[in-house]
Amino acid sequence: MDLLLPPLFPDLLLDLLSMALLIGGVFLGISGAVGVIRFPDFYTRVHAAGVTDTLSAGMILAGLMLQAGFTLVTVKLAFILLFLWLTSPVASHALARAATHTGAKPVTATSGEPSSSN
């Protein structure tokens, strides 16, 4: 089996894998951002923003980690990733809580009319 693989097997695979991760992260980010633009009311937008904050950031940082290999840079990237994964849900929760207090009404099937026209 290993005869078939090109000699520079680990570097080629790492580059391809990190490229795939980076492209996937950017794709998720753009789809989340389009969701933030197009969704009818505030609560659906919080969901769309949550997608970009966690998974898209995770894939992009994982792609960078593969490029960095086992160095201090990877430890810093892991810390950023861990910090983003812990704090962005907290921020989204605080945001939704503040929105309910300031009276943002979710768009339900009955109400139909979006609470914010855009």
Binding site: V26, G29, I30, G32, A33, V34, V36, I37, F42, R45, V46, A49, T52, D53, S56, I60, S88, A91, L95, A98, A99, T102, A104, S116, S117, N118
Partner: peptide
């Protein structure tokens, strides 16, 4: 990532309620 930031800024300007703007700035 710059494209995503541009879209987030667009939501910040469009956003009717203040919480939409905070959401966009956070993103």
């Amino acid at each position: 990532i710059l494209v995503v930031m541009a879209l987030a800024l667009a939501r910040a300007f469009l956003g009717p309620t203040i919480c939409d703007r905070i959401l966009a700035v956070n993103m």
